[in-house]
């Protein structure tokens, strides 16, 4: 555990909690892509099946349980409790265009050809693109609430900090995982455009709105 890894995890946790609180307090999931949230629930489920097979640490287990629990709670709030506020018309990204190729890639490129390992790889690949429905929704409506941009910033920072963590682990432990690194780079690159808008607009007190 190094500082990048820890702050990455905390950033991820912050993102998840910001989103839950935003929906809960405003009693509305307007502007939030339910499809992205379903993909994240799938990501956590596929990756953390090792909860049932191996114990790493109290920290590891509790974070996994919190992530999975919050992911399903978010999906429940969007598709059940506050369904009336869900903006399905603007959430029109075709997720099968992500899930099918990513599933194929996980079967083809993995560390070990075993069910758990393929599911882990699938979750790594899927996570890297799971935010696309949300970004697509923002580009379609041309704007995002400020609280939604804070959520996206924390979520983007999490994988960016993991990249630093992997550089650290490579230098100090000689450890690297090419699958995680490449997927993590892809994931971070997808946020670059958003990071730019966040710094130039939201941090200067303006609402994030895209030119028509």
């Amino acid at each position: 555990m190094n500082i990048f890894r820890l702050t990455g995890d905390l950033s991820h946790l912050a993102a998840i909690i910001i989103l839950l609180l935003k929906i809960w307090k405003s009693r509305s999931c307007a502007g939030i892509s339910g499809k992205s949230q379903i993909l994240f629930a799938i990501v956590f489920t596929a990756r953390y099946l090792d909860l049932l097979t191996s114990f790493i640490s109290v920290y590891n287990t509790s974070m996994k349980v919190i992530y999975i629990g919050c992911a399903y709670a978010t999906v429940y709030l969007i598709y059940a409790k506050f369904r009336a506020t869900y903006d399905g018309n603007h959430d029109s990204f075709r997720v099968e265009f992500l899930v099918v190729p990513v599933g194929g890639l996980a079967v083809l490129i993995n560390h070990t050809f075993s069910p758990l390992e393929i599911l882990w790889t699938f979750s790594i690949y899927l996570e890297s693109v799971a935010i696309l429905p949300q970004l697509f929704m923002i580009s379609k409506t041309g704007e995002a609430e400020t609280i939604t941009t804070h959520y996206l910033f924390c979520l983007g920072m999490y994988r960016t900090l993991y990249l630093f963590n992997w550089v650290w682990r490579f230098y100090f432990e000689g450890f690297f995982d090419m699958i995680a690194i490449v997927a993590g780079l892809v994931q971070t690159v997808l946020y670059c455009d958003f990071f730019y808008l966040y710094v130039t607009k939201v941090l200067k007190g303006k609402k994030l709105s895209l030119p028509a």
Binding site: H12, S54, N60, M63, Y67, H111, W120, A180
Partner: peptide, 10 residues
Amino acid sequence: KQANQTKDEL
């Protein structure tokens, strides 16, 4: 083993 070491990450 390389693959297992990443599993301590989230």
